[in-house]
């Protein structure tokens, strides 16, 4: 009962704020997605251990820095997947997307290097290719 009420409330608020979109965003599930998700899980585990080691290290060896990355994706859905994947892996946060550029904050030099190397970019591009 409470769930129904809160769903209705969210719907009414969304309509009043006009934050719903006109286009249809269907969640496409294909053969590529079951290959992308385990890869993302592996990256999440790797960077989690990296950040945990930084936190537990007595000297707190962090080098906070910002960088911009030109994503090679074209569709907005793939861009959203790219940005969310960057945020989901700890030690990198996508702060802003503007003019086909992702503004990223990285916690350490190693994580920043990972973004520059563009592993996530390549994987998401493969995912995008299989969608279109």
């Amino acid at each position: 009962m409470l769930g129904v009420l809160s769903c209705l409330l969210v719907t009414v608020l969304a309509i009043q704020l006009k934050i719903y979109s006109k286009g249809h965003h269907r969640l496409k599930i294909n053969l590529r997605l079951p290959m992308y998700l385990p890869w993302l899980l592996k990256e999440i585990i790797k960077s989690n251990i990296h950040v945990a080691r930084c936190i537990l290290h007595p000297q707190l060896p962090i080098q906070p820095q910002t960088l911009t990355k030109k994503p090679s994706q074209k569709t907005s859905a793939a861009l959203a997947v790219h940005a969310n994947s960057i945020t989901l892996t700890p030690a990198t946060i996508s702060v802003d997307i503007s003019d086909q550029e992702i503004f990223i904050h990285a916690l350490t030099d190693i994580s920043a290097q990972g973004i520059i190397d563009g592993d996530i970019d390549k994987q998401v591009s493969k995912l995008e290719k299989s969608l279109t």
């Binding site: 999440i44 950040v51 936190i55 904050h105």
Partner: peptide, 22 residues
Amino acid sequence: LGLFRMPSFITRVHAASLIDSL
């Protein structure tokens, strides 16, 4: 622990993302 140890706003967000990912 990272939320307390990290020195600034954005680095604390990094520490918190540990909790809701892995």
